[in-house]
Simulated scan of single mutants.
Amino acid sequence: MAYNPSGRTAPRASRAYSIISEDSYAATPRPTPPPATRRAASRALRANSAVSDVPTHVDGGTRPPTTHERRIAAHYTLPPTVPSPFTGTLEASLDAVLAWGHEHTNGTQKIVNALLREVDSMTNWPILLRGMLIDCDDGDDEATGRGRRLLEELLFLVTRTLLPEQIAENRAAMARLYDRKKQLAIRLVLRYDMLREWKVDASYHPFPVPSLPPPPIDPAAQPVSAMKIGHPPGCSTRRPLMSNVIATLIAAPPGGFTTHGVRERMKHYITDLDDYLLLSDDKAAAWSDLVLIGMTSQIVLQWQWLRQNNEMLQEMEVQGWEELDCKADECDWIADDIKKPSGARKEKGSMGIDVNELV
């Protein structure tokens, strides 16, 4: 049985639910339910609006663009790469770690070992990364900046391969879960986009992005993933930045999801995790060594949290999702509603660093 965050087994008398109905559609947000009194105060909160303001399928068509949609960055609307380069398995990530270790042999074994083994919450990533930076800059390597280059290579291994693989794995599990439990509340704490706080507008409404099927393939069009982006010298094996990586990861299967309830629940919610996926070579190169160590540590922690979440979802699926057979306000796996924060909240795996505030 999967680990229960409160140490208790949730009642199974009724199914977990949300305020979105499978058979109904509201053009305006419904009232926010009253805050649950039995929930931990440190939990994030369930979304205020039952229906998002971005275009979605309605009676075979789509709603026109809204002000909300126009505030969403253009990279969310890029055509996805088909087929996706991400298989959505932990094995793919571990193979990538091994390949990275074989490519960069001297001074990286401790890092490789820490990434390959089961997640250990006691791993001190800043110390490990600083050790690699110092060890690889000793002697002749110092003049070439090998330690710094390896640190950047590790950062992009995580942001361009490991995180996308586990996000794809998480979304595949989400699709199976929501197809089985179409009334399950959206803010399941094991979702990849619940690792970080949802970004909200001035009215504290989140920014959901619909999961749409890929458009028909134009044989003459060049895939976004094949567009060449220059690499710094000595970094020829670095995976290129995919400007459409998020669109690729959140794309629905051909034909789309079959029910409105699943489509609503498979929407992507914008968080700081998106900024990690779109991190550019130039931005990372401009960081000091100290900032680079801090950011890489934070992003590796996010990947490890997601890896653990996926393992929990797998265990739940084996048990037929029984741990979710309860009302949302009684289920420890469902977060509360979004509301105006009273102060800064430190998210799990977060070291309090905002990639967009770094120059």
Rank of each mutant, 00 (worst) to 15 (best):
R38H: 11
R39L: 01
R39G: 01
R39E: 13
A41P: 03
A41R: 14
S42R: 15
S42F: 12
R43M: 07
R43E: 15
R43S: 13
A44L: 12
A44K: 15
L45R: 12
L45A: 15
L45F: 10
L45M: 10
R46K: 03
R46I: 03
R46E: 10
A47P: 05
A47G: 05
N48Y: 05
S49I: 07
S49W: 05
S49L: 03
S49D: 11
A50N: 07
A50I: 02
A50R: 14
A50D: 11
V51S: 07
V51A: 14
S52W: 13
D53N: 08
D53P: 02
D53R: 06
V54S: 04
V54H: 12
V54K: 00
V54Y: 06
P55V: 01
P55L: 06
P55C: 07
P55S: 15
T56E: 08
T56N: 08
T56R: 13
H57G: 01
H57Q: 08
V58E: 10
D59P: 00
D59R: 15
D59M: 02
D59E: 15
D59V: 05
G60F: 06
G60C: 10
G61V: 04
G61E: 11
G61P: 04
T62A: 07
R63D: 05
R63K: 06
R63C: 01
R63L: 10
P64F: 11
P64L: 06
P64Y: 04
P65Y: 07
P65L: 15
P65D: 15
T66P: 03
T66W: 09
T66F: 03
T67M: 15
E69K: 09
E69T: 12
E69G: 08
R70M: 06
R70I: 03
R70A: 09
R71N: 04
R71P: 04
R71A: 15
R71S: 07
I72E: 10
I72H: 00
I72A: 02
I72Q: 09
A73S: 03
A74Y: 03
A74L: 10
A74E: 13
H75G: 05
H75A: 03
Y76D: 01
T77Q: 11
T77C: 04
P79M: 03
P79K: 08
P79R: 14
T81G: 00
V82N: 14
V82E: 06
P83G: 04
P83L: 05
P83I: 01
S84K: 10
S84I: 01
P85V: 03
P85L: 10
P85Y: 05
P85Q: 04
F86N: 02
